[in-house]
Simulated assay, not measured.
Amino acid sequence: MTDTNNYDIVLVVTGTVVVLLMALFSVSFIFYYHRRQRESTREKQAMQADFERELLQTQLETQNHTLLQVAEELHDNVGQLLTVAVMRLNQLEDEVEGETAQQSVQQTREVIDTIIADVRSLAKTLDHNTVRRFGFLPSLTLELERIQRVGRVQTQLQTTGEPFSLGEQAETVLLRIAQESLNNAMKHAHASMLIVLVDYQPDSFTLTVSDNGDGFRVDEVNARLIDRAGSGLSNLQRRAKLLHGACAIESRPDAGTRVCVTLPRNSVN
Score class of each variant (00 low, 15 high):
residue 164 F to E: 01
residue 177 I to D: 06
residue 182 L to S: 03
residue 194 L to S: 03
residue 174 L to T: 01
residue 170 A to H: 06
residue 196 V to W: 13
residue 181 S to G: 09
residue 165 S to W: 04
residue 168 E to Q: 05
residue 186 M to W: 01
residue 192 S to F: 06
residue 186 M to C: 00
residue 176 R to A: 14
residue 185 A to M: 08
residue 194 L to D: 05
residue 182 L to T: 11
residue 174 L to N: 00
residue 194 L to T: 00
residue 163 P to E: 05
residue 194 L to F: 00
residue 176 R to I: 12
residue 189 A to R: 07
residue 172 T to A: 13
residue 184 N to A: 10
residue 178 A to Y: 00
residue 178 A to W: 06
residue 174 L to V: 04
residue 170 A to Y: 10
residue 167 G to H: 11
residue 176 R to W: 06
residue 162 E to R: 01
residue 175 L to C: 10
residue 191 A to T: 14
residue 178 A to P: 01
residue 192 S to R: 11
residue 192 S to W: 00
residue 166 L to C: 02
residue 195 I to K: 15
residue 172 T to W: 04
residue 183 N to M: 03
residue 189 A to T: 00
residue 185 A to L: 02
residue 163 P to I: 05
residue 175 L to T: 07
residue 172 T to H: 03
residue 175 L to S: 10
residue 192 S to G: 00
residue 170 A to I: 06
residue 172 T to R: 14
residue 181 S to P: 08
residue 191 A to Y: 10
residue 193 M to K: 13
residue 164 F to S: 03
residue 190 H to D: 15
residue 164 F to I: 03
residue 167 G to P: 09
residue 176 R to P: 01
residue 193 M to A: 03
residue 176 R to F: 10
residue 169 Q to P: 02
residue 170 A to L: 06
residue 196 V to N: 12
residue 175 L to H: 14
residue 183 N to D: 14
residue 179 Q to D: 08
residue 196 V to P: 10
residue 172 T to Q: 15
residue 165 S to L: 07
residue 189 A to I: 05
residue 184 N to S: 08
residue 168 E to Y: 07
residue 162 E to M: 09
residue 184 N to I: 04
residue 185 A to S: 15
residue 188 H to D: 02
residue 186 M to F: 05
residue 180 E to V: 14
residue 175 L to E: 07
residue 168 E to T: 09
residue 163 P to N: 00
residue 168 E to F: 13
residue 177 I to P: 00
residue 183 N to R: 14
residue 173 V to T: 13
residue 193 M to C: 02
residue 166 L to P: 07
residue 176 R to K: 09
residue 180 E to H: 11
residue 195 I to F: 02
residue 181 S to Q: 00
residue 194 L to P: 01
residue 196 V to I: 13
residue 178 A to D: 06
residue 183 N to Y: 09
residue 182 L to Y: 05
residue 187 K to E: 00
residue 181 S to N: 00
residue 191 A to I: 04
residue 188 H to Y: 15
residue 170 A to M: 11
residue 172 T to C: 11
residue 195 I to H: 13
residue 174 L to I: 07
residue 180 E to C: 05
residue 187 K to I: 09
residue 190 H to E: 15
residue 173 V to K: 05
residue 168 E to I: 11
residue 189 A to M: 10
residue 185 A to R: 04
residue 186 M to S: 08
residue 169 Q to V: 13
residue 188 H to E: 03
residue 195 I to N: 11
residue 193 M to R: 12
residue 193 M to H: 14
residue 180 E to Q: 15
residue 169 Q to D: 09
residue 185 A to T: 04
residue 191 A to H: 11
residue 171 E to L: 05
residue 168 E to D: 13
residue 177 I to G: 05
